[in-house]
Design a protein around this nucleic acid. Structure first.
Length: 479
RNA sequence: GGCCUCAUGGUCAAGCGGUUAAGACGUCGCCCUCUCACGGCGAAAACUGGGGUUCGAUUCCCCAUGGGGCUACCA
């Protein structure tokens, strides 16, 4: 059995989109699962679209995500170079060969003539005009230095079919395929040509790519056939959408992998989540590490319909990963975000991290969870109302002064002591624990939601500030 | 316009002729609880429409509708 070789072939035109990353991930997972090789190839044949730094982003993103390639521009390999712009002479050689085989031909038509072939809607195919040039005419034009391109010679009749592993049999009539440009006048190949040459030369057995190539694959097969090469297995993937109508794209300002990481989504969660977009595991377990994905990945689980990127579910997964982290692990990741909080430095950092770990799904939410520590002011007395505790502004009025006395009497102002004192107070007042604790917590924080209970909040604030806030809360209530 | 392709709850998604049509996220409710959260339990929520084929269609075929893609000297 031949070794499986898959590749990820992005063009360095900007950021890594989630969709790209998923394509890379699937190629990687399939290769790993089959004990094969995963290759990175850079498709930079369009100099106009080249973006500085984009190559580095590709390297960094794949490395950061744990999608390691066995061969590639920066890691080497026996099939290099892995950058298309460095393979120009190879493409020229094969284009020449394809011409000799009859699968392609020189075309000297200029832009004006090409344009004249199109109708008012800009639709119109090349008419094979130059296919009929004699060998001598071609030689003369070439010798005269007339600019040319090499076009694919697509049959005018018949059709091409192939069996895609996810979409099944796809058939396209050749009459619907234009004689596309294979080698541009600048000597560089188009994607349509380079991908065929490279996939073959690099021994790619399984081509995994987006569904946008579904209908152009027959023309690639025409080339494989003309060269007498074995066609690869095709696995086309449905797009990832931002909504029902638009694909996810950086151009629209949609989140890239880097953006998501910057927001504080856990990396493993991002990988885990995108793996689930278009693929489903046999079992009902959705939370899986990269290693587990490698073990469970199967082409049979691939889906053919577009999937909408759902951030809430990513949030949930991210939260799951956060909750299972050790304190140290979480602390290391969360610290940069905690430092953006105004509360950072003024309180016990470890204590803050502990409080926040089970209450946050995305790291960037940390500052907001702690803002009550440094922000306190007049608030709506309705916050005291809680139907389960049966508390409201009136009960708060009765409880707060007593709570202040209790706080003042607590010697060691820590969570346990404060809690014990407050529970005792509730007893003395003949009230439910929750009633007292709810009111105190609201008075202390002016927030309905806090990263801990009343006594924890009091401990965090310290005796002095707690008493001060209790006093302020009472004055708000008096108005 | 032509061609390719897709279609199960709000979202992801299982299903591959006969099912009470899984599961997850989200939503809502209940329980636990010193709040929130965590955790536990539960609920609402789907086969785009019309024709066939069949004893029987979510499942197979056709059409319609809707979505996406291709139709570049972009990938």
């Amino acid at each position: 059995m031949k070794e499986v070789r898959t590749r990820f072939a992005p063009s360095p035109t900007g950021y890594m989109h989630i969709g790209n990353l998923r394509t890379a991930l699937y190629g990687y997972l399939y290769a790993k699962k089959q004990g094969g090789k995963f290759i990175l190839r850079l498709e930079d044949t369009d100099s106009k679209r080249y973006v500085d730094g984009a190559v580095q982003i590709i390297y960094d993103t794949l490395k950061d995500a744990g999608i390691l390639y066995d061969e590639g521009p920066d890691v080497g390999g026996a099939y290099g170079p892995y950058v298309q712009s460095e393979r120009a002479s190879i493409y020229r050689e094969y284009a020449q060969k394809l011409v000799e085989l009859g699968g392609a031909y020189y075309c000297f038509c200029d832009a004006v003539r090409i344009e004249s072939l199109k109708d008012e809607n800009g639709v119109g195919r090349y008419d094979k005009h130059c296919l009929h040039l004699s060998a001598q005419e071609v030689a003369e034009k070439l010798a005269a230095g007339v600019p040319y391109v090499i076009r694919q010679n697509v049959p005018e009749t018949g059709s091409g079919s192939y069996d895609d592993l996810v979409y099944g049999r796809v058939t396209v009539d050749y009459k619907d395929i234009e004689d596309g440009v294979l080698l541009k006048s600048d000597g560089m190949p188009t994607y349509n040509f380079a991908n065929v040459i490279d996939d073959h030369l690099m021994g790619i057995t399984h081509v995994i790519r987006g569904s946008e190539y579904l209908s152009s694959t027959p023309k690639y097969n025409l080339m494989y056939d003309a060269f007498g090469w074995e066609r690869p297995v095709y696995i086309h993937l449905p797009p990832i959408m931002k909504n029902a109508h638009e694909k996810l794209s950086k151009r629209n300002g949609d989140a890239s992998y880097q953006d998501l990481v910057a927001k504080g989504y856990i990396k493993q969660a991002i990988i885990n989540y995108i793996a689930l977009l278009g693929w489903s595991p046999k079992s009902n377990t959705e939370k899986m590490s990269l290693r587990e994905l490698e073990e469970n990945f199967s082409l049979a689980g691939l889906n053919k319909s577009p999937a909408i990127f759902d951030e809430p579910k990513l949030r949930w997964l991210s939260g799951e990963y956060i909750k299972e982290m050790s304190e140290e692990e979480f602390g290391a990741l969360a610290l940069p975000f905690l430092q953006k909080s105004k509360a950072y430095g003024a309180y016990d950092t470890q204590k803050l991290l502990r409080m926040v770990q089970t209450r946050v799904d995305v790291l960037e939410d940390i500052p907001a969870k702690l803002d009550f520590l440094e922000e306190y002011g007049r608030f709506d007395a309705a916050l005291y109302s809680n139907k389960k505790m049966k508390s409201d502004a009136e009960t708060a009025k009765a409880i707060l002064p007593e709570a202040a006395k209790t706080f003042a009497a607590v010697q060691t102002f820590d969570n346990a002591s404060i809690y014990a004192a407050l529970v005792e107070l509730a007893q003395n007042l003949g009230r439910k624990n929750g009633q007292v604790l709810w009111c105190v917590r609201i008075a202390l924080t002016a927030r309905e939601n806090t990263p801990g209970g009343a006594s924890e909040m009091a401990e965090l604030l310290g005796k002095e500030r707690s008493l001060a806030r209790l006093a302020q809360a009472q004055s708000f209530l008096a108005e």
